[in-house]
Amino acid sequence: PQEEYKKRAKKALKKGDEDTAREALKRAGLSPDQAEEFIRRFL
């Protein structure tokens, strides 16, 4: 589910792994723009 992928993305970002985070967010159904926004907000 979407929440699970978002959790995964946050874990990846904590490790500084933005590529894995983007992949997880893409799987969560976010557009690339939404994924970038999510990452920017998190960092």
Rank of each mutant, 00 (worst) to 15 (best):
A35V: 14
R8E: 15
Y5H: 12
R8Y: 11
L43R: 11
D33A: 13
R22I: 05
T20Y: 10
G29N: 04
G29I: 00
E18A: 12
R40M: 09
L30P: 00
G29C: 02
A12T: 01
Y5G: 08
E3D: 13
Q34K: 07
G29D: 03
A21Q: 00
T20K: 09
L43D: 06
E37W: 04
A12D: 03
R8S: 11
A35W: 04
D33C: 11
A21D: 00
L13G: 01
L13I: 05
R40N: 11
G29Y: 02
E18F: 15
L43G: 08
E36V: 04
L13N: 01
R22H: 05
A28S: 06
R22S: 03
K6M: 15
A12G: 02
G29M: 03
K6T: 10
E36I: 05
L13M: 05
K14L: 15
L43M: 10
K6H: 08
P32H: 11
A21Y: 02
Q34A: 11
E36G: 04
Y5L: 14
Q2H: 11
P32N: 10
F38Q: 02
E3T: 07
L30E: 01
K7T: 10
E4D: 14
F42P: 01
A21H: 00
A24T: 08
E4R: 08
K7C: 12
L30Y: 10
L43T: 09
R22K: 07
L25H: 00
S31K: 05
F38R: 00
A9M: 02
K15R: 13
R27D: 11
F38H: 02
K11T: 12
L43E: 08
D17W: 04
I39S: 00
R27K: 14
A24P: 00
E3G: 07
T20P: 02
D33R: 09
A35D: 01
L25Q: 00
K7P: 03
R40A: 09
A24N: 13
R40E: 11
A24D: 11
R8D: 11
K6Q: 10
D19G: 11
K15D: 15
Y5K: 03
R41H: 12
Q2R: 11
K26N: 09
G29F: 03
A21E: 00
R40D: 10
G29A: 03
R41K: 13
R22W: 07
K26S: 12
G16V: 02
E18I: 15
E36F: 04
E36W: 04
E37D: 11
A28Q: 03
R22N: 04
T20E: 13
R40H: 11
I39R: 01
D19R: 12
Q2F: 11
E23P: 00
A28L: 05
A24R: 03
Q2C: 14
D17P: 02
P32K: 10
E36Y: 04
E23F: 02
A9W: 02
K6N: 05
F38Y: 08
R27S: 12
I39W: 01
L43V: 08
F42N: 06
K7N: 13
E4A: 07
K14F: 10
G29K: 03
K11I: 15
S31L: 07
R40T: 09
A9I: 04
F42Q: 06
Q34P: 00
F38D: 01
K10H: 09
I39G: 00
E37H: 06
E18K: 14
E4I: 08
L25C: 00
P1R: 13
L13K: 01
K7Y: 06
F38W: 10
S31C: 10
A12R: 02
A21L: 02
Y5T: 04
K15A: 14
Q2P: 09
G29T: 01
E36D: 12
K10M: 14
A24Y: 15
K7Q: 13
E18C: 13
D17V: 02
K26Q: 11
R8L: 15
D19H: 12
A28T: 04
A35N: 02
R22F: 06
D33L: 10
I39E: 01
E36N: 09
E23K: 09
G16D: 04
S31N: 09
A28I: 05
L25R: 00
E23R: 08
A28Y: 04
A12M: 05
Q34W: 04
K6Y: 15
R41F: 08
G16A: 04
R22A: 03
L13R: 01
D19T: 13
R22L: 07
Q2V: 12
K10N: 07
A35L: 10
L25Y: 01
P1S: 14
L43Q: 11
P1N: 14
G29V: 00
D33I: 09
